[in-house]
Amino acid sequence: MPRPTVFGEFFPPDSLLLEITASRSLSVEVEIVAGDRITHLAEFRMMPSNQPEMVKRTTTEVDRARSNSPGLISATFHRSLDGTRMFNYGQWESKEAFEAILKQPGFNPDQPYWEGLARNEFHLYHVVYVETAG
Rank of each mutant, 00 (worst) to 15 (best):
L124I: 03
E53L: 07
P112W: 08
S94Y: 11
T60S: 10
F122V: 10
F107N: 04
P4R: 13
L17C: 07
A34L: 13
D63L: 02
Q91G: 04
T84G: 00
E31L: 15
V28D: 15
A34M: 13
Y113I: 03
M54E: 03
A133V: 12
P52T: 05
I20M: 12
G35N: 11
A65C: 09
V55M: 06
Y125R: 03
E29Q: 15
F77S: 01
R37A: 07
Q51M: 04
V55R: 01
F122H: 10
E43C: 05
L26N: 13
P112H: 08
L26A: 13
E115W: 04
Y89Q: 07
G134C: 08
I32H: 14
R85S: 05
I101V: 11
R64G: 06
V30I: 10
V62A: 05
R3H: 08
T59S: 11
V28F: 14
T5N: 14
G90F: 01
G116D: 07
S67E: 15
T21C: 08
N50V: 06
V62E: 01
P13K: 07
T132W: 05
V30R: 04
E31H: 15
W92M: 08
L81W: 06
A97M: 09
A42Y: 00
I73L: 12
R79C: 02
K95P: 01
N120D: 02
T39R: 11
Q91A: 07
L117F: 06
S67D: 14
P109W: 09
S94W: 10
R24Q: 07
R37D: 08
E29D: 14
D63V: 00
S80W: 02
M47C: 04
E115A: 15
E43P: 00
V62G: 00
P52K: 04
P48M: 07
G35W: 09
S27N: 10
A118S: 03
D63M: 03
E93Y: 09
Q91E: 15
K103W: 02
F87W: 13
P52N: 05
D110H: 09
V55C: 05
P48K: 04
H40E: 14
Y89E: 07
K56V: 00
T5R: 14
Y113S: 01
F107K: 01
A75V: 06
A133S: 12
L117Q: 02
P48H: 08
L17Q: 13
